[in-house]
Design a protein around this nucleic acid. Structure first.
Lengths: 196, 196
DNA sequence: ACCGACAAAATTGTCAACAATTTGGATAAC
DNA sequence: GTTATCCAAATTGTTGACAATTTTGTCGGT
């Protein structure tokens, strides 16, 4: 949980390793921005601010748009089948109103696009950004009507990728994530006024 | 130097700290991607491949284009003066054919844009990407006629920013860094054939 | 009851020693 | 002369102890 204190000795005994391991792990998480460390005061889970959440989502947008373009140029016949299979799973999840399955398909589709794009640098950065957003993502998914519109956006992305149309893929991804950003802003604003 | 072995004891005595510090530092550099560590075999400076260099430059392009747009929306009168001052310094450096000064102005301008955009997430990522590119950047700067064309590109960026035109700023930055990417590809190809 | 000083506990920072593993070289067999 | 094997040196991985610092709790005075 945000701001939760991370006591080295506790973590060490919990995971059955010694403090040195925990220490290096915390150093890496610090570098990654997931925890903050203060001298002699230990590590805490970093609480990202609302403004920061939006920054992260926008940065993600910029990179994923590029990745979508790159992926479009590399799609093979086998990739088309995989993409369409994920799309079918996603359609089923929406039909069944299964939010968990939808979320899983969502992740699977984005991961598949990364795999096709074969851009390890971008993928690594996106993984980090996602780890920050994951806590906020469920708020957006749960908005009424979101799965339906999200499905339509994803279908446009898959369509463009299968057509190997880089411009269209980038545009579709940009549209999808622009919507995500604006819904995120909305959810944050709602939370700000409606309590929490 | 790439692939150079980083012996913990040596570094510790060199910097006058103990091995534990070096160890955590190496863990962070590993997370950052600047160093690779193999179990029981120590750490080495990571040698980025040609393909990776291009990936990094392209990812940088995507983020900097976004940052330029964000900066344009926030430029103040004071920012305009700073930007124009850096531009003037840059023009002087080109006139004097002072590559070192030009490189310094280049960095200063990009940093100033980041500051104006006020997007800590993007700035942090860009700092990491730059640290990987720094070794390759000089090859591009030294290409004949590069300072002149680079200057023109930078002037377009400054112009768009001062006009608070987000679209133009993003487009100008994208054009600038697209040129950088293609020159980098060129330089890499030349090195591949002409032997280093 | 409230505030401050002080002591005790908890926690992190630092360090050195030892164990495990890899590396380099010498030696012996072919 | 080349290759395989083994030993020694170098290096990293792991552990525990201790020092420094912060946090918590207690006591006494007002």
């Amino acid at each position: 949980m945000p701001n939760e204190r991370l006591v080295e000795a506790d973590l060490a005994s919990h995971y059955g390793v010694n403090r040195a391991h925990i220490r290096t792990a915390l150093a890496m998480l610090d570098q990654e921005g997931l925890v903050v460390r203060e001298k002699n005061r230990g590590a805490r889970v970093r609480a990202i601010t609302d403004a920061e959440a939006i920054e992260i989502a926008e940065t993600r947008l910029a990179i994923e748009a590029m990745v979508a373009r790159q992926a479009a140029a590399r799609v093979t016949e086998a990739d088309r089948k995989t993409l369409r299979a994920i799309e079918a799973d996603m359609r089923r999840a929406v039909k069944d109103a299964d939010d968990l399955a939808f979320s899983r398909c969502n992740g699977a589709l984005h991961r598949e696009i990364h795999r096709i794009a074969d851009n390890a640098t971008a993928s690594r950065i996106l993984a980090t950004l996602r780890s920050h957003l994951v806590r906020l993502q469920y708020r957006v998914i749960l908005l009424p009507g979101r799965p339906q519109s999200s499905l339509a956006e994803h279908r446009a992305i898959v369509e463009a990728l299968c057509a190997r149309d880089g411009d269209a893929a980038e545009a579709a991804m940009r549209k999808h994530l622009t919507n995500f950003v604006s819904l995120l802003k909305q959810a944050i604003e709602a939370a700000r006024h409606g309590g929490f």
